[in-house]
């Protein structure tokens, strides 16, 4: 095994953020009062980690603005579900509308932030998140392409590398594309990275990681602006999860 491969193997064994911690870090990117759409997977966990002092209005592409927590057992109403078919509740000030208006909001630049999962992101911010090449079955686009095209700010939450060790942040996506040059920020289990006109800028690294180590697991060049701080996660208070 060449030296670099040995080194990478060791890197892959280093502790990283959990999926919940990625969500917790991404939650800090949401401004108070923002209208926000959360996609499947890690982004869906973000609702559990909102700082207590802010209110965010969650949008669902099936026509809800102001989604609250998930319904408790016995409280479920299957006419009030999120985009993952999970029964939800509404917060005061919520509204309901049809699917065309829901996507007018996504496409027309009305949502402040959208957070999606992804298989690959390119150094130009191209997003590939709807289909794995060669996967069985039809696949499905859902609302991802409308959301990618229109959100004012698009954040991607994902693991930094694929299960097989392949980089997910790449020079050019090889997976089927969802949208071109649409990603603004990536929050991974290793780093926070901004997609800028000059390329990918490493803003923060996970505790115990150096920018050089993160670069080794990234398929496109990262630049830095001065010292790169570690990702700081506020302590989660017990009970906060359920009440939000």
């Amino acid at each position: 095994m060449p030296d670099s491969a040995v080194q990478e193997k060791a890197l892959l064994d280093k502790p990283r953020l959990t999926r919940e911690q990625i969500a917790q870090r991404a939650a800090l990117e949401l401004p108070d009062g923002a209208y926000v759409n959360l996609g499947w997977g890690i982004p869906n966990l973000i609702a559990n980690y909102l700082p207590k002092e802010i209110t965010v209005y969650f949008h669902s592409e099936n026509g809800i603005l102001g989604m609250g927590r998930r319904a408790r057992p016995g409280e479920e109403d299957y006419d009030l579900i999120d985009a993952m078919k999970v029964p939800v509740t509404l917060i005061p000030g919520a509204s309901i509308f049809h699917q065309a208006d829901a996507h007018l909001m996504t496409r027309g630049g009305h949502l402040d932030v959208a957070v999606l999962g992804s298989f690959q992101v390119s150094e130009k911010g191209d997003l590939a998140n709807w289909k794995i090449p060669g996967a069985k079955g039809s696949g499905g686009i859902g609302g991802a392409m409308d959301i990618a095209a229109g959100a004012k700010k698009l954040i991607v939450c994902m693991e930094h590398v694929a299960r097989d060790g392949a980089a997910k942040i790449v020079k050019k996506c090889t997976y089927p594309l969802t949208g071109l040059a649409c990603v603004d920020t990536m929050v991974t289990d290793l780093a926070v990275i901004d997609v800028m006109s000059e390329g990918l800028v490493l803003r923060e690294v996970a505790r115990g990681w150096t920018p050089e180590e993160v670069q080794k697991l990234t398929g496109a060049p990262l630049t830095t602006k001065g010292r790169v701080p570690e990702i700081h996660l506020p302590r989660v208070l017990p009970g906060l999860l359920e009440e939000k």
């Binding site: 699917q99 065309a100 829901a102 996507h103 496409r107 039809s138 696949g139 686009i141 609302g143 392409m145």
Partner: peptide
């Protein structure tokens, strides 16, 4: 049915389907 080619599919982005 899709795998057996008994049905064909046009996939459309959700909001574009609406529009």
């Amino acid at each position: 049915r899709f795998a057996a080619r008994e049905v064909t599919l046009e996939l459309v982005p959700q909001g574009i389907l609406c529009e």
